[in-house]
Nucleic acid binder design. Structure first.
Lengths: 131, 131
DNA sequence: ATTAATGCAAACACTTTGCAATGGA
DNA sequence: TCCATTGCAAAGTGTTTGCATTAAT
């Protein structure tokens, strides 16, 4: 929670609320999810502040921007390398905690110097399988 | 090129041009890349027609919509399962042709029935490494 | 006191839609 | 002829920006 302290950053009530909302949140919220969740309690909350804070957190490495949703950016407070399961029916995005081995022969890497990777698994979640 | 024939679909000059532009294109163009490339030769080409045609091709399984770019949708005429290398410097997206083994223990799959996956490799391409 | 952050409104970028006109089949 | 498609313009959705005000340090 004191991730924002230091370097001239100010700890405003809005930022604290956004950080608390994100802390441990595994729902991969978009900016407007955050706004809607907090505007009741903080009536002056604005989208500009949400985006501003997300940008700050992202730049400081406390937040990862996901590109899994074609409609909008989603944010993941878990910055440890991990992968995602995406339900093709209900669009739910679930973290994959297990470390998955990826065997990618270096001679196939097209001259790239690879620094990381991200796997999207597509499927049907347990509750969508039942319907 | 006669992928569109049948089922009441009409083969208009605009659609033919878009399909020809996409055929074998490995640059993962966005809608406006396609529009800009074709509007010179087809002055009446419109974004609506580009989006319309992309939608038709996507629904018929001749095109894949990529979610790798946070700014806009990109399209890939290669619908065979494959992965992508993304240069973190120049944002270039390159196909990975080799089949990559992914070891994902079923007991870790959170009850999902997995139907496919897509890997984004992040790195620096050969020419960006040199700068 | 200083200066970063807020939040409104406006601008922006990308995508979708309504609908009259067009033109393949 | 018939009806899918075109293409303009307008609207919709998500994101960013300008700037005067506010408030954390």
């Amino acid at each position: 929670m004191d991730k924002l302290r230091g370097m001239g950053l100010k700890l405003t009530p809005q930022r604290i609320a956004i950080m608390q909302y994100l802390e441990g949140n595994t729902g991969h919220p978009a900016a407007d999810d955050i706004y809607k969740a907090l505007v009741q309690q903080y009536p002056t909350m604005s989208m500009a502040t949400v985006y501003n804070t997300l940008e700050v957190l992202k730049n400081r490495g406390h937040l990862r921007e996901l590109t899994v949703d074609p409609q909008k950016k989603r944010f993941d407070p878990n910055v440890q390398p991990h992968n995602h399961l995406i339900c093709v029916a209900c669009k739910k995005i679930v973290d994959v905690h297990s470390a998955i081995k990826v065997l990618f022969p270096p001679e196939e890497q097209g001259g790239f110097e690879i620094v990381g990777h991200h796997i999207e698994f597509y499927g049907r979640c347990a509750s969508c399988k039942k319907n």
